[in-house]
Design a binder for these strands. Structure first.
Lengths: 134, 134
DNA sequence: CTCTTGACTGATAGTTACTATCAAGTTGTA
DNA sequence: TACAACTTGATAGTAACTATCAGTCAAGAG
């Protein structure tokens, strides 16, 4: 059994966010001790893991709740859950691609600045060095 | 010269968001025609491009504004701007890594579900098929 | 046996970055 | 002249945190 603090460290999710997710019904099997303190077991860690995964890829909390509810219904929903996973994979791949494109932009900027630094910018007080660049 | 609608299509950013960014001071050189309509030129497109790039990697709008203000100051800020670009690159790389990790989680789920579908789930009414899985 | 410390609780409010709605002005075409 | 298609700013709404706060509880120090 883990406390919220331990889960926070283990899974690298803030305690605040864990409570927020819990309140949103994203951890269906969580229990409390006699003092009302949340106790996470291994299954709960699995829930944290899948929620974190879906959130990272931009799935909204409502859709995540939907996926979790499907899990709770049982095996009759497996095809639907499979589709959700595959759609999410697709989204993740698109994001990789987009990130790669933006890295290209940054690499171009990097070269641009390195060139400026190398060549002519020893003296920022030189009035020639006042052009605006993006 | 481009209208906001054209820029929206060209850069794949909603008109709403473009106006929001404009209002936040993220497009420093934008002009208006006699009817107060925004006119984007090639330089403005460059601004849109860099803003979009930084946002994609999670830079907040305030920090983007800071970068833009540094650009406007001129060449004396080039080293600072270079550092921002390099830090952003680092962040992008981390996000790629994180995305790859989450893809692993999804691939595992995919296999898990494919296995279930292949083996024993022809009949969802079978009471044996009611276990909860994440 | 009280006191303090630290972890936890829920409630509430604040923040960021959109996103949607709306009334109003302008322009091009019929 | 009417109307459709743009555009504008203002305003409000939303998602998902994130921060603050007052309060509970248990364990250890003195």
């Amino acid at each position: 059994m883990y406390t919220i603090k331990e889960v926070s460290k283990l899974m690298d999710v803030s305690e605040h966010t864990l409570r927020f997710w819990a309140k949103s019904g994203l951890f269906p099997s969580i229990t409390r001790d006699k003092n009302n303190i949340r106790q996470f077991d291994e299954t709960d860690l699995e829930w944290v893991k899948i929620v974190k995964c879906l959130r990272k890829i931009g799935t909204d909390n409502k859709s995540i709740k939907r996926y979790i509810d499907l899990c709770l219904i049982g095996d009759s929903t497996i095809k639907e859950r499979y589709k959700i996973i595959m759609d999410t994979k697709e989204k993740a791949l698109q994001q990789m691609e987009e990130l790669r494109n933006q890295l290209d932009v940054l690499n171009y900027k990097q070269k641009f600045y390195e060139n400026l630094i190398k060549n002519n910018l020893e003296d920022p007080w030189n009035p020639a060095n006042k052009k605006v660049t993006t």
